[in-house]
Design a protein around this nucleic acid. Structure first.
Lengths: 139, 139
DNA sequence: ATAGCTGCAAATGCTTTGCAAGGCC
DNA sequence: GGCCTTGCAAAGCATTTGCAGCTAT
């Protein structure tokens, strides 16, 4: 489904990404990639670490998330001006965002067909086409 | 083109929106709505005010932008985790975002046809479908 | 051994808030 | 006059950074 194949071999995943398999990174790998696709903030992830009785500083969580993003193990999703979300699903896909709850999830049914992709203006190339379907609770 | 019709009657625009036409709001209206569609941050707008030799505090600019957004004179666009953009174009449309320059602009050719709109999950309704085409400079 | 990591605390940067003074109706 | 606004400075919050100590190779 994503880059993580076979059996929880975080160690080799990290090596392949050129990152040293430290205790902290292995723990974060397990939480991030061990339960299917996830959409998570640094704060939430740090909370999960603490709930497990582990201790990784919030700064390290932030740094690690960015290292993973640079290493293309994660994608960043910009949906909320006050929080940064990271997505373990690397495929080209879109998102539902439950505004009230602050919950982000993949749009079921894969990528929407968007018809002709717009042309990139001269001197530029399209890096990504982000689609976010914002949801509110029914009143 | 947008809510602002005829001739720069910011005063009545504000009244209609239920906002008192103060000196600051009138000046911000002029800058925001006087030159066609704009995509602007609080910081930039504050800069323009100062370039004109006027003086409106940054806090007031922020507050005013949010008041305008609440009054549906502006739309907020979430594209950059470090900055909040406001859009004077209220129609349903999509955006190009030049990552490097931090420049946001409307996608030419109106809204992309996206095929069938995804179904909103139970208990929710779709508030908006945001499409952002992220652009990088050609290497 | 050494280059790379981590943790802490401090710094940053955008944004919001509290409250006294000022301005619109 | 009364109430909404403004302005400033201070607070807030998520995130980043600097640096000393630790760790994987």
């Amino acid at each position: 489904m994503n880059i993580m194949q076979k059996n929880d071999d975080w160690l080799s995943v990290l090596r392949r990404a050129g990152l040293r398999p430290t205790r902290q990174r292995l723990a974060l790998c397990r939480l991030l990639f061990g339960k299917g696709d996830r959409h998570i903030t640094a704060e939430t992830l740090h909370g999960e670490i603490q709930e497990e009785g582990l201790s990784i500083s919030l700064a390290t969580v932030y740094n690690t998330l960015h290292q993973f993003t640079d290493a293309r193990l994660l994608k960043q999703v910009v949906v909320d001006p006050t929080r940064t979300y990271f997505d373990t699903n690397l495929s080209d896909h879109h998102h539902f965002f439950f505004e009230k709850e602050g919950v982000l999830c993949d749009l079921p049914g894969g990528k929407i067909d968007m018809g002709p992709t717009p042309e990139a203006p001269d001197g530029t190339r399209i890096e990504s086409v982000d689609v976010i379907v914002r949801l509110a609770s029914v009143v």
